[in-house]
Simulated assay, not measured.
Amino acid sequence: MTAPYTGGWQCGQIRYEIRAEPLTLYACHCKECQKQSSSAFGMSMPVPRDAVVILQGQPKQWKRVSDSGREVSCLFCEECGTRLFHNPARNTKITNVKPGTLDNTSWLKPVGNLWTRSAQKWVIINEQMINYEAQPSEFTQLFEQFQIE
């Protein structure tokens, strides 16, 4: 797979395109990601913020403080509630795309796990991946290990 990547909300009201390669892909097991995904973890795929283009519709936005104490803007569909992007205030050059909203997800392969200390007890954390008990201070290792096949 190569850019551009397309995706959209569950209801089809909003469509987007990513015009650059993702920087990495990981699973986050923090309590907020568990709540927003209604599952055991959330997926995040950081991309350059200026590479994300909304092709159709307009997402709503709200802000929250993450488990690490940092502010995050969350973009979602007002119609169906699907979460699509997280824009961290600490890094205005990155958008964290929720990769399950991509049209083609067959190539996704996460390289790590964040907030493993909050993981559900039944989730098996692969020790061959890059794993952090909480929020890493930097993501260099996650970026270096990521490859699109």
Rank of each mutant, 00 (worst) to 15 (best):
P22I: 01
S106T: 13
G112F: 04
I14D: 01
A89M: 10
I14V: 11
V72L: 11
T6L: 12
Q10L: 13
F85A: 05
T140L: 03
L114K: 10
T24S: 15
A89D: 06
N104Q: 07
T101A: 13
V72K: 01
L23R: 13
N126E: 10
E21R: 06
E144A: 11
F139E: 02
V52P: 05
Q120G: 11
S39K: 08
F85E: 00
Q145C: 10
Q147N: 10
Q147D: 09
T2M: 03
Q147S: 15
P59Y: 05
Y132N: 13
S106E: 13
V72Y: 03
F76I: 14
Y16M: 01
P99C: 06
F76K: 13
I124L: 09
A134Q: 08
G12M: 14
N87G: 01
T95N: 10
I94N: 02
T92P: 15
K121H: 03
E133G: 08
A89V: 15
Q120T: 14
A3N: 00
A119D: 03
F85Q: 03
Q141H: 13
P99R: 01
Y5Q: 07
Q135N: 10
N91P: 00
K35M: 14
Q13P: 02
R83Q: 14
R19A: 00
R64K: 13
I148Y: 03
M43H: 05
Y26H: 05
C80K: 03
L55H: 08
V47W: 12
T6K: 15
V47A: 02
E21G: 00
Q13W: 09
T6N: 13
Y5S: 03
F139D: 04
S44C: 11
W115C: 10
T6E: 11
C77K: 10
N91A: 13
L75Q: 07
E144Q: 11
W107T: 03
M43Q: 04
T140M: 03
A134K: 15
